[in-house]
Design a protein around this nucleic acid. Structure first.
Length: 154
DNA sequence: GCCAACGTTGGC
DNA sequence: GCCAACGTTGGC
């Protein structure tokens, strides 16, 4: 098993895809990222072995519910080429793909959800990107914050 | 369901 | 290249 080089936070609405879905499937292709900054993080910095906080948005409770692992190198998101898919992008082509993804695997589900309220109010998580860039669905997390959330708060 | 924040589009 | 209009996200 490769050691993680970078740490991330991935957001998902549990109605669309939850940590329980990932636990059931064990592995999934993280399709549907259509934001350039998020795409750049995936394309330029994600590596096999990296660990991700799995965050449930628009849910009750909202917060980090578990951990996933990046299990392969970034590659073009096939849904951008599928005209019937919700994430189809007519500006993209297989020769010159715009959107990238990685495959992720289930690592663990926390016994307790680390809520957004906790994350916002904990002084140890000062400076975490989630606090000020609420809408970015793929974001880097420092090793310190990753360890604190997954070991101290979860 | 509302709406603030913020990313994207397109006319100029 | 600016910026107004528009669309989406996501907390509340």
């Amino acid at each position: 098993m490769k050691a993680p080089k970078n740490y991330w936070l991935l957001k998902s609405e549990p109605g669309a895809y939850s940590i329980d879905d990932l636990n059931r499937e064990k592995k999934t292709a993280w399709t549907g990222i259509r934001n350039y900054q998020a795409r750049n993080f995936i394309r330029d910095s994600m590596q096999p072995g990296d660990l991700c906080l799995f965050y449930h948005s628009n849910s009750d409770p909202m917060g980090v519910v578990g951990v996933a692992r990046v299990v392969g190198k970034p590659y073009p998101d096939p849904t951008q080429f599928d005209i019937k898919n919700h994430y189809f992008d007519p500006k993209s082509s297989p020769k010159d793909p715009i959107w990238m993804l990685v495959d992720i695997a289930f690592v663990k589900k926390f016994k307790h959800c680390v809520t957004l309220a906790e994350i916002k109010s904990d002084p140890a998580l000062e400076g975490m990107m989630l606090r000020r860039r609420a809408r970015l669905s793929v974001q880097p997390v420092s090793e310190k914050h990753f360890g604190y959330i997954s070991q101290e708060l979860a």
